[in-house]
Simulated scan of single mutants.
Amino acid sequence: MNTTEKYLVGVYDDEDEVLHAVTEVKGKGVKIEEVYTPFPIHGLDTAIGHPRTRIPIAAFLFGLTGLTCAQFLINYTMVFDWPMIIGGKDFFALPDWIPVTFEGTVLFTAFGMVFTFFVSNSLWPGKTPKTFDLRSTDDKFIMTINMGTNKKSEAEIEEILKASGAIEVNVKQF
C-alpha cells in the first residue's frame, strides 16, 4: 500500500518572524508538524509545543550501565578469575578501579547516545530523509504543516501562512 502524505510548507526570511508566526498560526487552530531552521532559535521548541526531552535520562541510564559493566568486569577478573596480590593490596581494591570504571561509564554513555540519536531521528541505512526545502540549511526558515492532521482546508491554511509573513507557500508530497 503506497500512501502519500501531503504537507504545506511555509518559507520565512527572518528568525523573529518565524517565531512570531508559530504562535500566530497555532492561535488560529493549525497544528504545526515541525519548523526547520539553519540555526537554533531560543524558545521555538516551547512555542511549537514539543515536550521536554528525555535524553538526559537516557544518558544517565547508559552511564549507569557502563559503570555496572566496568565494575563487574574488574571484579570478576581481579577477584574471582585471576586474583593477584599487587603491591600488597587486597584483591578488592576499589580506589584502583576508579579510572577504568570512569572510562567504561564514558564509553557506554557515548555509544549509547549516538545510538539513541540515530534511532530517535530515524537515521538508519537506506532511510531517505524528508527534505522539505534545501534552503533550510542555508538561510531560510521552513514551517511544515501536515494536511492529514489538520481540519482546515488547504486554501485556509495557505492564507494563514501568508498572513503570518511567509514569503512562499509550497505543497510537498512524500
Rank of each mutant, 00 (worst) to 15 (best):
N121S: 01
N121I: 00
N121G: 01
N121D: 01
N121A: 01
S122Y: 01
S122M: 01
L123F: 06
L123H: 00
W124S: 03
W124Y: 05
W124P: 01
W124H: 05
W124T: 01
P125N: 02
P125T: 00
P125H: 03
P125C: 02
G126R: 04
G126Y: 03
G126K: 04
K127R: 13
K127N: 10
K127H: 11
K127P: 08
T128S: 07
T128D: 08
T128V: 06
T128L: 04
P129M: 06
K130M: 10
K130A: 07
K130W: 02
K130S: 08
K130P: 06
T131W: 02
T131P: 05
T131S: 07
T131F: 04
T131R: 09
T131K: 09
D133S: 09
D133Q: 07
D133L: 07
L134N: 13
L134S: 14
L134D: 15
R135Y: 00
R135W: 00
R135L: 02
R135D: 00
S136Y: 05
S136F: 10
S136W: 04
T137A: 07
T137N: 07
T137I: 03
T137V: 04
D138W: 01
D138L: 03
D138A: 05
D138S: 09
D138N: 09
D139S: 12
D139K: 06
D139T: 07
K140L: 04
K140T: 03
K140N: 04
F141R: 07
F141V: 06
M143T: 10
M143Q: 09
M143A: 08
T144G: 02
T144R: 02
I145Q: 03
I145P: 12
N146E: 12
M147Q: 09
M147S: 05
M147A: 05
M147R: 06
G148T: 08
G148P: 05
G148L: 13
G148E: 11
T149E: 14
T149F: 15
T149H: 15
N150P: 15
N150K: 04
N150A: 05
K151A: 11
K151T: 13
K151N: 09
K152S: 13
K152C: 09
K152F: 15
K152Q: 14
S153A: 14
S153Q: 13
S153T: 15
E154H: 09
E154L: 11
E154R: 11
A155G: 13
A155L: 13
A155F: 15
A155Y: 14
E156C: 06
E156T: 07
E156F: 02
E156G: 08
E156Q: 14
I157N: 06
I157C: 09
E158F: 01
E158C: 10
E158A: 12
E158W: 02
E158R: 09
E159Y: 04
I160L: 11
I160W: 12
I160Y: 14
L161Y: 10
L161G: 08
L161P: 14
L161R: 07
L161I: 10
K162P: 15
K162C: 11
K162I: 07
A163F: 10
A163D: 15
A163G: 14
S164H: 09
S164F: 03
